[in-house]
Design a protein around this nucleic acid. Structure first.
Lengths: 93, 93
DNA sequence: TAAATAGTTCAAAAACCTTTGAACTATTTT
DNA sequence: AAAATAGTTCAAAGGTTTTTGAACTATTTA
């Protein structure tokens, strides 16, 4: 269980270390329907450029999964990543 | 359980989002005796100035507690912080 | 008392992250 | 076919974080 490089772990914590992204994560956790980037951006007052940047980081960290349908991109939380890198972090280091 | 500002949460994730600090945390988790900043710094090849900076951030995030004895500062992990802000993060947002 | 050791503080430099607006692609609606 | 909508990309600007060396305080050892 001893790490030597931690890069995925750091990518996840970096992705979580920002208020815009935490707001997005909360929004996704509390929503009961499939949501698009646009819906989240409007709800949280994030410009589309900035939203695009933050969704990309969340995706690269494995925190969200995305599905493109026509013009829209639907996003949802990937709970496996929380499990592996957040919830069990302390136990696993 | 709904957050509105998240500042402590972000301070914790920021503190965890760095490889030097993750190395320090691992070192503290795996050690069986009380350790000083100097011991950790030597073991991990961190300059004392840089060490001082990182220990300060970890302390401000509540991730370590410290005890000064004479010249030396002893550090240890504060598992309550992991409990509150890391292990239970996903459940609590 | 002088030298060594443990740590802190400061300012500068370097590296990294976030926001912005403009220009763009692709799809849908009128 | 033109206009509208959803999202991306780019470069520039601004902000934040990290590393560095020098100078510092406080304590201990020779």
């Amino acid at each position: 269980m001893m790490n030597t490089k931690n890069t995925d772990q750091i990518t996840v914590f970096k992705a979580l270390a920002d208020s815009v992204r935490l707001d997005i994560i909360e929004y996704l956790k509390h929503t009961d329907h499939e949501v698009s980037c646009g819906e989240v951006g409007k709800a949280l007052n994030i410009s589309k450029t900035s939203g695009s940047y933050h969704f990309k980081l969340l995706q690269e960290a494995g925190i969200i999964t995305t599905r493109k349908e026509a013009r829209e991109k639907y996003v949802s939380l990937n709970s496996k990543t929380f499990d592996k890198y957040v919830t069990n972090f302390y136990k696993n280091i």
